[in-house]
Amino acid sequence: MKSYAYFPGCSMDSTAVTYKKSFEYIAAKTGLDLKEIPDWSCCGSTAAHTKNEKMAYALAARNLALAEKHFPGLDVVTPCAACYSRLRYANYAARKNEDLRQEIEEILQMEYKAEPEVLNFLDLFSDPDLQEEIRKGIKRQLKGLKAACYYGCLMSRPREVTGETDPENPMKMDEILRLVGVEPVIWDYKTECCGASHQVDAPEASRELIDRIFRNAQANHADIIVTACPLCNMNLDMREEEINRKFQRSYQIPVFQFTELIAIALGASASECGIHHHFFPAFDVINDQIRSGNISEKREQVQKVQEDPLKSGPIIVGKAGK
């Protein structure tokens, strides 16, 4: 399988704990080879490009330059949509403008060729070799689980930076989840914005955005919403209860990272894939699936799975969080 330079991004070490755990589980099971960029730093995020365009490029480019130095020839992969966007913007701008590229090198005091591609996790999981490994390792089919795949803005737009051909209706996550039996629903808020950091600094203006995403997922009969970004995930998962209170809703739609579902399919226990870290209780939906026989086990796995904490222990943790 292909090797990649890995840029985890700041959230992976804090709020994105489920993302990290489930991903590490998959990596161990499939033999995925990610090489973490040594001494990587923040991509600059929204703050940098709000204040200073050059800083936005340079902070992102530092990490790409480190990747080029330590892992020449490898593409860079990152789990966070915002990091993905900032890193790709840096490459896009530097490739378009040679003067800018040289200026960035000058600022970094490092060589920066802007050559490696920057990929997000959906790109990574679209790799046929990795998909084959997943297919081989499937222990459970998540059949009948209806998922609204939420991509958010930054992996889709602007299309000249992301390379996405259909920013209104991207399909990568839908296809990845189909691998493990999940049934992606057709819905219309795949790439509508979650508000990003405005959920902190302009909550009055942006809570409604989350409500609309849940509303459309519910209208299209989704059991769960699935994300591929730490911030999208937190904005939806952490604020679902507040939305229910604030707008008098009764959404019962847990929010997963797509890696959690794959980890479950590969046989992860609840604590291995991080379900107990969710804000909005996520056990019931998985248990309901198991009870209704939708999550089917391969015969030889049955004995083992009955002891799997997925069905017993950690549920209490989930309830405690309620």
């Binding site: 200073n52 340079a58 600022i107 970094l108 005091q109």
Partner: peptide
């Protein structure tokens, strides 16, 4: 990281 930010700020916005 600090020197990168300083250089960018001294140069002003792009």
């Amino acid at each position: 990281v600090r020197s990168i930010m300083k250089k960018c700020e001294e140069g002003g916005a792009l």
